[in-house]
Each structure stands twice: as C-alpha cells, then as structure tokens.
Simulated scan of single mutants.
Amino acid sequence: MFVVKRSSSNLIKLARPSFRVQIYNSRLFYKRFYITTPTMSKTALVILAQGAEEMETVITVDMLRRGGVTVTLAGLDGSSPVLCSRQVTLVPDMSLTDALAEKPQYDAVILPGGLEGSDRLSKSSVVGTLLKEHEKNGRIVAAICAAPTAFVAHGVAKGKRLTSYPTTKDKITADYQYVEGERVVVDGNIVTSRGPGTAYWFGLKLIELLTGKEKSDQVEKGMIISGY
C-alpha cells in the first residue's frame, strides 16, 4: 500500500512498506525510508520585445516564480539585453527561437505591454502562430496593458471578453467584448489586464489559474499586496 504525502519542498513522498536495517550494539533497528519523486511544475513563456513595459514584465515573472511556476523569459529578437520603455535594460533567459526549440508548448504564453513592445509583438508572425496554437490547445494566453492589441493583430481570442490600457481601447475591434472597470478579465483561457498598476493582480490571477487559489493567496500574503 502506498501513502502519498505532499511536502513543502514540492516533492511527493511515497511511503513504501520498506525498511532499512541498522545494527547498534548487536540489536536490530528498522528505519523506514522514502522514495521521493519530483512533481512537474507548470510552465509559462513570457515574451520580451524591445520597448516592453518593464514593470509588467518583471512583476509578472517574479510573481509566477514565487507561485512555483517555471518561467522562461524569452527575447523576441534574440538573447541579447532588451531596452524597455523606461530605459531599463532586461536580460532574457534565452531567445524565443531557443525557447520554442526546447519546449514547443507551455501552460501559459504571456505578453507584457508597452506601446513599442506591443507593436513588435503584433508584427511577429512567430508570435501570431504561437498564440493561435496555444489558444487552440486550451493553454492560457495572457496579455497586459497595450499587449492585447497583439491579439487583434493576429486574430486571437475573437468574441472573448478582454481589457487593455485605456488609450488602446479604440484599437480593440468589434470582434471582442471590451471590458472596463476590472483589473483583470478572464474569459476561458484568455487573461488580460490594464497596466503597470494592475500587474500584481494579473500575476495573482495567473498563479491561481496555473497552481491554485491557495498558492495565489499565499503569494499575496507574503508580498503584502493587501491586508497591510
């Protein structure tokens, strides 16, 4: 009989009816031992383009990693440092090409905002194909601030409820149901949010969808996002 126990180290311990024999002073002692098997964490791909909004990028990546998600920050144009919208330079983990060669499908694909960054994402055929494949396969497709305009450019999430940075509202066509007054909007596997100030709630919602409400609440408490 196997008894499954979850440990705080993200491992599953399987307690087998097996013992290790040890001898002390001519007496036998039986010590139960465990075989540990690592759990597979959820994965997220965050695409970093020149001119991206740095807060939305860093906060989202940071929060997901706090939530136990394996995050790959992939550079749209390669693995070189990327200059963001407020002149902060971020270094991707690898290029988008390498990230997709290593793992073609992720549990979530996430687009940070920033006007220039969003425009570059909108013009990338690689991003368009990636978004369509993930939407079709029921994976999470998420965007914040101006990045939902990339959904429009690539014909992704048509008919779904979504939101964006207020000044980009006129770029969201009638193919979508535009929502105002909500920090994060979820419609099936489509997740959108409004801007830098809502990035924390965007991150929390992604954690909840990927790893559960309990983990999301734990991250929120640890970061003192509310309840201070």
Rank of each mutant, 00 (worst) to 15 (best):
T163H: 03
A157H: 08
L111Q: 00
Y228G: 14
C84W: 02
P112D: 03
G114P: 02
F29C: 07
M223L: 11
T168A: 09
H134K: 01
F202T: 01
A49H: 00
S8C: 15
S26P: 03
A99L: 07
K103G: 06
E182K: 13
R120C: 08
R16Q: 13
R139K: 15
G128V: 00
M63F: 12
N137P: 01
G114V: 04
R65I: 01
E214D: 15
G117C: 01
S8F: 15
S95T: 02
V88R: 06
L28W: 07
L210A: 07
V185T: 06
A143C: 07
R32N: 10
P104K: 10
D107K: 08
Q87I: 07
G128L: 00
L100T: 03
L130T: 04
L210P: 04
G67L: 08
T129Y: 10
G138N: 12
P104C: 08
E133N: 14
G51W: 11
K103F: 06
G78A: 09
Y200W: 10
A52Q: 05
R20I: 11
V61L: 06
S125H: 12
S85A: 12
A146F: 02
G203N: 03
V179G: 03
S125N: 14
S85D: 04
L73A: 03
G114A: 05
I12H: 15
L206S: 06
K31D: 13
L131S: 09
C145R: 09
A101H: 08
T72N: 09
A150N: 08
N137K: 15
V58A: 09
S122F: 02
Y178L: 12
A52V: 07
S7A: 15
R161E: 13
P166I: 08
T167A: 12
G212Q: 14
L83S: 11
I23V: 12
K13C: 12
R6P: 14
V184A: 03
V88A: 02
F29S: 10
T70K: 12
T192R: 02
G195A: 08
S7M: 14
V88H: 05
E53R: 04
G203H: 04
M94D: 02
D62Y: 02
T60L: 06
S216N: 09
A147K: 09
S216G: 08
G195L: 07
V109G: 06
R6W: 15
L100I: 11
I35L: 13
S85K: 04
L76Q: 00
K205M: 05
A108V: 05
N137H: 14
G113R: 04
T211Q: 01
V69I: 13
V4L: 15
E133S: 14
V179M: 05
H154R: 06
G51P: 09
W201K: 10
F19P: 01
D93M: 05
V3F: 14
V88L: 06
A44F: 01
G155Y: 00
R183C: 11
I172P: 03
L64C: 12
Y165W: 11
R27C: 10
L130W: 01
S41D: 14
K160W: 05
T89W: 09
P148N: 04
L76Y: 00
Y228S: 13
G117P: 05
S216T: 05
A52E: 09
E56N: 05
V186E: 06
G117I: 03
R139D: 02
E54V: 12
G138L: 10
E180A: 15
L11Q: 14
I47F: 03
V152S: 04
V82Y: 02
V185Q: 08
A74K: 09
V127I: 11
E135G: 06
L206M: 10
T39A: 14
N25L: 06
